[in-house]
């Protein structure tokens, strides 16, 4: 069993997302450790991209700040190394595919293995394009996380059958970011997934407060919180550690 799936055995999982390099990679190290301390079970580290087409404004702006701050892949790997000196929390890289393609799939996943990064997720690799990285990720023991969305319909079974780690269930239409309404077919989606696969499901996109996190984790195995976390960092910048801990603790408590 993978370290990601182990995390789900302990109960409902809280999976916060953070944009690497916002406001700096040193702060990313500090904030990841702080979120673990506050109760995060798995942490999703976003690799910033110039053109994040699946993101709402909050993560778009965080990506821009990170890139303007001089983000590099080598810098990211150094930061993860520092995290790994103190923590063994399961980590995922969330990334647009071009920076990884450019770095070289083999070199990238070899780094993931070296740094014990457990999972990989890209919004640009649907089921049809999985094999872009599948073989090399497997070679280095990195689980490729698949996504299911409210429009997946008959695709759900096919995706779930081949899922690794956990399934990222997209809560609603559109891009990442705060919203008040979620798709009405979420419970049905989870039911379909469970009928074909034992893989845990976590819901993400638009979850911004403890109530929503509790509700979403209630019908699945966990909640992924991105824009709301990134917004705290946008607000407090270099001084986000305490407010971040407080927010993550409040989310965890609600699950």
């Amino acid at each position: 069993m993978s370290r990601i799936q182990d995390a789900f055995l302990k109960g409902k999982c809280l999976i916060p997302f953070i944009t690497a390099g916002d406001p700096s990679l040193d702060k990313t190290v500090e904030y990841v450790l702080a979120m673990e301390e506050a109760g995060a079970d798995i942490i999703e580290i976003g690799i910033p991209f110039s053109d994040p087409t699946a993101e709402g404004v909050v993560i778009q702006e965080a990506s821009l700040r990170a890139l303007q701050g001089g983000f590099t892949m080598e810098g990211l790997f150094d930061a993860v190394k520092k995290i790994r000196e103190k923590s063994s929390i399961p980590l995922l890289f969330m990334t647009y595919i071009n920076p990884v393609h450019h770095y070289g799939y083999d070199a990238f996943f070899a780094k993931c293995k070296e740094l014990s990064v457990d999972g990989f997720l890209s919004p640009e690799l649907p089921f049809e394009e999985k094999e872009e990285v599948a073989e090399v990720a497997k070679k280095y023991g990195v689980e490729v996380i698949s996504m299911v969305s409210p429009t997946s319909e008959k695709r759900i079974e096919r995706i779930a059958k081949e899922a690794e780690g956990f399934l990222y269930v997209v809560s609603s239409m559109g891009v990442t970011g705060v919203r008040t309404q979620f798709s009405s077919n979420l419970e049905e989606t989870i039911k379909t997934i469970r009928s074909v696969s034992k893989v845990p499901c976590a819901i993400g996109f638009g979850i911004s407060n403890p109530e929503q996190a509790a509700k979403m984790a209630g019908i699945s195995d966990g909640a992924i919180v991105g824009s709301a976390i990134v917004r705290v960092i946008a607000q407090y910048g270099e001084q986000a550690k305490e407010p971040l801990k407080e927010f993550v603790a409040s989310l965890k408590k609600a699950l």
Partner: peptide, 22 residues
């Protein structure tokens, strides 16, 4: 390899939400 290829070029590197619509 996915559909819509011209040699190695092309493909469908797009979010799951849009796949059924495509």
């Amino acid at each position: 390899m996915s559909k819509g290829r011209f040699g190695q070029f092309g493909g469908q590197y797009i979010s799951e939400t849009l796949m059924n619509e495509l």
